[in-house]
Design a binder for these strands. Structure first.
Length: 585
DNA sequence: GCCGTTTTCGGCCCGACTGTTTTCAGTCG
């Protein structure tokens, strides 16, 4: 899958064209195509072979040629030519806040600044302030940004940023001038990583809200403040932006500040076609200039003629077009919600590398309103995690049976997280696997295998008739470990055929499958299990991040395996097993 | 560079803020 690579190619071209001073629309065309290709659920290479590049929105004749050239030869003459005109470091300079294409070009041409280090030197020597259009303030701002740029390369996990945003929102609600507060931006869309935290508030006295915000104990430093907005750094150096609007504009502002930018652009274009104008203050009739809505977010979508689009879908991945159809035929799909989840199908206990006992994990599941939990400890080959020998796992099984007698109607499902070994064989014999209510499989070793070997390894694991769920299918750890090389399309198509479910692992640093991959899995008709992989009771709270990812993948309740009531779940699992065993005989 | 129930040419989302200017360009979200 070279989608990311192609997107990067186009973005690189866009960066250089920008510095070159090309039309913003031409630059925008490259970026728009890049975004669409990155968001594509199918493989761009396969699409290219089928002659279907033209069908990608934003890709016209010229880009088809450039993309095809890149896919065939691994390079682009056009990009090479551009690169030869400018030093590589200029692209890096664009990343510094406050430095756009124009200023980057300026410092390059006037001062020979060709990268971050040159820029630091020029700032240090106070050379920037004498350039046309720049001054002392600009130089100081860049100096400060450079310092921050050095330390701030990482994005934060949703699992870190969302609790922080909620804490701040709660704190602001106790400020008397505040009417409403909502986290907005990418947090509200539940993106897997977050650059900075955006909070929206409504009030008739914005200045009081700003004062209240700047005085919060978790604020370390106020970076910028105006009459309706303020940016601060928290003690952990996360940037938080607060924006305060009038109550009558709250809905429009919430829509606007939730984004994504691409979603909003598309929404506004559509509005414009219908004689309407949307901004953060409301929605207006373009002819009369009269405001026709804006107090609630629902207003905006309804007046433009769309069904309401949940924040998690707002990524310009076809949701606007879909919302148009939904509004027309009244069939708005309801995305899965946390309240739909009936149990967690992947948790650990202290029998392997978990912290809590079996009973404690069951109690934690009950406390969350679940009617079942599947205990899936590690199998024997995962030595580092005290993987269970066949004898021990049978011992645990007996204990589970006993506990179930006491806990009914709550149900502990006896499961296992079984390693698919490097050669594609499974860690237990079939006779043992037959003892489990649910068998889930994972890759925990030899993650560097080449793509074909890894794919074949996974497929052979999935083909075992006892296997029901494939855990964290790509093995990524956000920010730390890339997904292993695997042909997901083949995995999905085999899984669909066999009736094996895929996991969305809800651990905030995994979220694996990702939103895009899960949406692709749904296209194949695959069931998704949203599991926390809890190694401690409190980890079961990660479920919300898994559900968020599922919603970003457009999943509905009916797509989610653990939204089933316990009887239906157990029946489905045993029917699937029986069917597959029958085929094998 | 893309795109089209107003267009195959002439558009392309919208507003705020900052710093530099003296009416605006650049940047950002």
């Amino acid at each position: 899958m070279k989608n990311k690579e192609v997107a990067k190619l186009l973005n690189n071209i866009a960066d250089l064209l920008e510095i070159k001073g090309e039309s913003v629309f031409r630059v925008g065309a490259y970026r728009s195509a890049a975004r669409h290709i990155e968001g594509l659920s199918e493989d761009v290479e396969i699409l290219a072979r089928a002659g279907g590049l033209r069908s990608i929105p934003g890709v016209g004749e010229s880009l088809v040629t450039k993309i095809s050239e890149y896919l065939e030869t691994g390079r682009s003459q056009y990009l090479e030519d551009l690169k030869s005109q400018f030093p590589q470091g200029l692209i890096e300079l664009l990343q510094v806040p406050g430095l756009g294409p124009k200023k980057t070009k300026l410092v390059y041409e006037k001062l020979g600044v060709a990268g971050i280090e040159d820029l630091e030197k020029a700032v240090h020597e106070r050379k920037l302030r004498d350039l046309p259009g720049m001054g002392e303030k600009t130089e100081q701002k860049i100096e400060k940004e450079l310092e921050r740029w050095r330390s701030r390369t990482r994005r934060y996990l949703l699992g870190e940023a969302l609790p922080l945003a909620e804490e701040i929102a709660d704190a602001l609600r106790s400020c008397t001038a505040v009417q409403r507060v909502e986290p907005s931006g990418s947090i509200r869309r539940r993106k897997e990583t977050i650059g900075d935290v955006d909070i929206l508030a409504s009030s008739d006295h914005p200045d009081e809200v700003i004062t209240c915000f700047d005085a919060l104990p978790l604020v370390k430093e106020v970076i910028a403040k105006g009459s309706t907005k303020s940016s601060v750094l928290t003690q952990q150096d996360i940037q938080v932006d607060l924006r305060v609007v009038k109550p009558e504009s709250f809905g429009a502002a919430l829509q606007y500040f939730t984004g994504s930018k691409e979603h909003n652009v598309k929404l506004r274009e559509l509005a414009q076609k219908r004689g309407l104008k949307i901004n953060e203050y409301g929605i207006f009739d373009e002819r009369t200039g009269q405001k026709v809505g804006g107090e609630s977010e629902e207003d905006i979508y309804r007046i433009v003629g769309l069904a309401y689009v949940p924040p998690e879908m707002r990524e310009d991945r076809g949701e606007i077009e879909a919302a148009e159809r939904w509004a027309a035929d009244g069939t708005v799909p309801e995305l899965v919600e946390i309240s739909d989840i009936r149990g967690d199908l992947h948790v650990h206990t202290n029998w392997s590398d978990g912290l809590n006992t079996l009973e404690e994990m069951a109690a934690a599941a009950m406390a969350r309103g679940y009617s079942y939990v599947a205990i899936c400890d590690h199998s024997k080959s995962l030595g580092v995690a005290h993987g269970l020998s066949p004898e021990r796992v049978l011992e645990q099984r007996a204990l589970i049976d006993e506990a179930n007698k006491r806990l009914a109607p709550f149900r502990i499902i006896a499961g296992i997280e079984l390693d698919i070994r490097a050669d594609g064989t499974l860690d237990y014999e079939d006779e043992l696997l037959a003892q489990f209510d649910i068998v889930t499989v994972s890759i925990h070793s030899a993650m560097g295998q080449p793509r074909e070997k890894m794919t074949e390894r996974i497929l052979s694991g999935l083909r075992n008739p006892y296997v029901q769920i494939f855990n964290h299918p790509t093995g990524r750890i956000i920010g730390r470990r890339e997904p292993y090389e695997v042909d997901l399309e083949q995995v999905f198509s085999t899984a669909a055929e066999l009736g094996v479910a895929m996991e969305i692992n809800a651990a905030p640093d995994r979220l694996d499958l990702s939103d895009l991959a899960a949406r692709r899995a749904k296209d194949y008709g695959i069931h998704i299990a949203i599991n926390t992989d809890a190694h401690a009771a409190w980890h079961m709270d990660f479920m919300r991040y898994g559900v968020a990812t599922a919603r970003r993948a457009w999943l509905q309740k009916s797509d989610v395996l653990n939204a089933l009531p316990v009887e239906e779940l157990v029946q489905r699992l045993s029917e699937n097993r029986a069917r597959r065993l029958a085929v094998r005989r």
